[in-house]
């Protein structure tokens, strides 16, 4: 033990005296920044290319070799896109779908998470585990009966049908995250209120929810992003203009089979528009989104 410490001391002393070359001092930092630069390039180039394509006039997109700088930037692509996709209708549908799904999923999950985190009852563990395992069931594998059931309930082509499906998909992860947040909040205040005979629902909405407000906000944002990005459910269950979302609109644009006829100009414009809300959410909430994602996974 003592020997280890003394050799350790000796090497550090030696280092500081003899070996402290310039590279030893700055090499690590330079390497870190080099890795960072590479990381930025790998993440950023696709965005640059999409954005550049979205402001390049349509005629100049099909060039060999491709251009890497927009020579005559224009917003025409955006205007064309808004004209040929029913853009504002799809945007409205996407917002209804994403906001609805995130609100319903977080609301239902918060109630369930309270029960799982605070109330001791037989079977609570089984419900929790079943809930988590149910994530593994692929949506597409059970799509046929799901479609038939929704048809019976007249929920195909409706906003609420889509929201029910999507929020159900979001539930397991949301419940898991909220359970771990509620477990961290001290429970004495609620217990006192309950013993005083307060209505349990009042206790949950007036005492518990305000305490976990940051967690609720985080899950609202994360679930909004996931629903905003969803393709499969809208593709199958939204078959009319008044329910189709932007991701379905993108697939409609790209359905032209050949490279020449596919409207890359409008597709890149729509891509930029679809990315903007997500970027804004990251800009303002990156810290809490990262914490929320990690909370679900690292338990």
């Amino acid at each position: 033990m003592t020997a280890g410490i003394s050799t350790g001391l000796r090497t550090t002393v030696q280092e500081s005296v003899y070996q402290q070359s310039w590279w030893k001092k700055h090499g690590g930092t330079i390497l870190t920044y080099a890795c960072f630069a590479l990381f930025v390039l790998v993440i950023g180039i696709p965005f640059y290319y999409i954005f550049m394509s979205s402001i390049t006039p349509k005629g100049q997109l099909f060039q060999i070799p491709p251009s890497y700088w927009p020579a005559n930037p224009t917003f025409d692509n955006y205007l064309n896109m808004a004209d040929s996709v029913p853009f504002f209708t799809y945007l409205r549908n996407s917002l209804i779908f994403a906001i609805g799904s995130s609100v319903v999923s977080v609301g239902a999950s918060a109630l369930a998470a309270y029960a799982l985190a605070r109330i001791r009852f037989p079977g609570s563990n089984i419900i929790y585990i079943a809930l988590i395992l149910s994530v593994a069931l692929p949506q597409i594998a059970v799509m046929v009966p799901m479609f038939q059931t929704l048809q019976q309930f007249k929920m195909v082509n409706t906003h609420h049908g889509l929201i029910v499906l999507m929020s159900s998909l979001l539930l397991p992860f949301t419940v898991m995250t909220l359970v771990s947040f509620i477990m961290q909040v001290p429970g004495e205040i609620e217990e006192a209120a309950l013993i005083d005979g307060a209505n349990p629902l009042t206790v949950i909405t007036r005492i518990v929810f305000p305490l976990i407000r940051p967690a609720l906000a985080t899950m609202l944002v994360i679930n909004f992003i996931i629903s905003w990005n969803e393709l499969l459910y809208p593709l199958i269950f939204a078959q009319r203009i008044d329910t189709k979302t932007l991701s379905v609109g993108m697939m409609e644009l790209s359905s032209d089979a050949s490279t020449y006829t596919r409207p890359w100009d409008m597709m890149s414009a729509l891509s930029v528009v679809m990315v903007i809300p997500v970027l804004l959410l990251i800009l303002f909430g990156q810290r809490m989104i990262i914490a929320g994602l990690a909370r679900g996974a690292v338990k």
Binding site: S53, W228, L231, M250, S254, S268, V278, I282
Partner: peptide, 24 residues
């Protein structure tokens, strides 16, 4: 900044990534 950047690929729609790379 690096941490914010690493959220972006996760957060953008898969459709957008797929179409963008198809073009690239």
């Amino acid at each position: 900044l690096a941490r914010s950047l690493s959220l972006i690929p996760w957060a953008i729609p898969m459709v957008v990534a797929a179409i963008g790379f198809r073009w690239m």
